[in-house]
Design a protein around this nucleic acid. Structure first.
Lengths: 191, 191
DNA sequence: GATTCCCGACTGAAATTTCAGTCAGCTTCT
DNA sequence: AGAAGCTGACTGAAATTTCAGTCGGGAATC
């Protein structure tokens, strides 16, 4: 596989993160990647295919940048907190991923064919959070009456809601982070 | 001012709710409204202008359909709960408004000029929720340690997050509503 | 020499925008 | 009263722009 293929995916990610999928022109992605438009059709079936692959790419990439410093085994609750707060950071990679993710979520409302990959990632996230909550609960770091699945779903939805509010300028980053910390406390009980 | 202008805005709302702003064609709106495309250019400067006015329109309209049955003075907490649950309903008006609102929120990430109206509505919502929480707190229906502003911001963000997940097929309506009820309990304490 | 990778130049269709002009009704002047 | 002049609402058709997608062929690599 050629390196250009990856370059195209990276370029597409950058362009989507900058302008959204609304006005996405394949010509622009080609320019950003420094290749001809024809090459996009060589590597990907069509515009929709390129889009789908780009979304895959962003998804898989985002599973790696989740690297909290707190050990999951030693302190599951601290690990969860860090993991969630990682989504609310002003670093290029996080911002880029979040903006693209927001577009994917919004697009899926009107394009059911995008939902499968969206749901897969959404579910994986919530499962992981739920698992951490369960483990924390076993160690008494989370109140016993809490339902791990419910709390996990809500916290994930909250993070996404806060992230979108931050990116759309309704909330400062600092406030979003504070709100998330408070939300974790409200959901899991004071630590 | 002619009634056709309003008809166009209503048609545009319907079309955006159905297809999103991505594939928005002015010809389609004209057809939906039963007028010529030229009329859209007569009443609105251009495609972007029409879009902006439509978003205004939806925004102002959404401030009216909030009509819980529970009296705000008698039972502020119940009123808040109903108000938030109103956003998670499978009725045409709610679905239409929510889908368009989602588009507005997502679009504002890339178009700062949309943010002003978005933020105004967002803030008004949170303020109202905060006020209800304060009143409920005075009556001992909400735990004393809760910060009304924080809880209100989080609950609003949670509703939006859940709504988007519901509309994009990541969550059933029933589950979204259950999660919201649980979230209210977690934020405000068991009633 | 065949396969893989890649480009420039095009095409066709679709969508936006412009424009000249119609029509109904309202005002003003005589 | 009625003619003349004016305006806002509206349309059909044509001009313009925008884009996804194609085609034929060139260069590198195996």
């Amino acid at each position: 596989m050629s390196g250009r293929r990856a370059a195209i995916l990276e370029a597409a990610t950058r362009v989507i993160a900058r302008d959204g999928v609304r006005g996405l022109r394949v010509e622009e992605i080609a320019a950003e990647a420094g290749v001809s438009t024809s090459l996009l059709y060589y590597h990907f079936k069509d515009r929709a295919g390129l889009l789908a692959r780009t979304l895959d790419f962003v998804n898989s990439r985002s599973e790696h940048y989740t690297a909290p410093e707190v050990d999951a085994d030693a302190d599951p609750r601290g690990h969860l907190t860090e993991m969630l707060l990682l989504e609310l950071q002003d670093t290029p990679l996080v911002v880029e991923t979040s903006r693209v993710w927001g577009e994917l979520r919004a697009s899926a409302v009107f394009q059911p064919e995008l939902r499968e990959q969206l749901n897969a990632t959404t579910a994986r996230w919530a499962e992981y959070a739920s698992e951490l909550i369960s483990r924390a609960q076993e160690r008494g770091r989370v109140a016993a009456h809490v339902s791990p699945d419910d709390a996990a779903d809500r916290l994930c939805a909250l993070v996404e809601g806060l992230s979108e509010r931050w990116l759309s300028g309704s909330l400062s980053l600092q406030r979003a982070r504070d709100l998330l910390r408070g939300g974790i406390a409200a959901e899991l009980g004071e630590p």
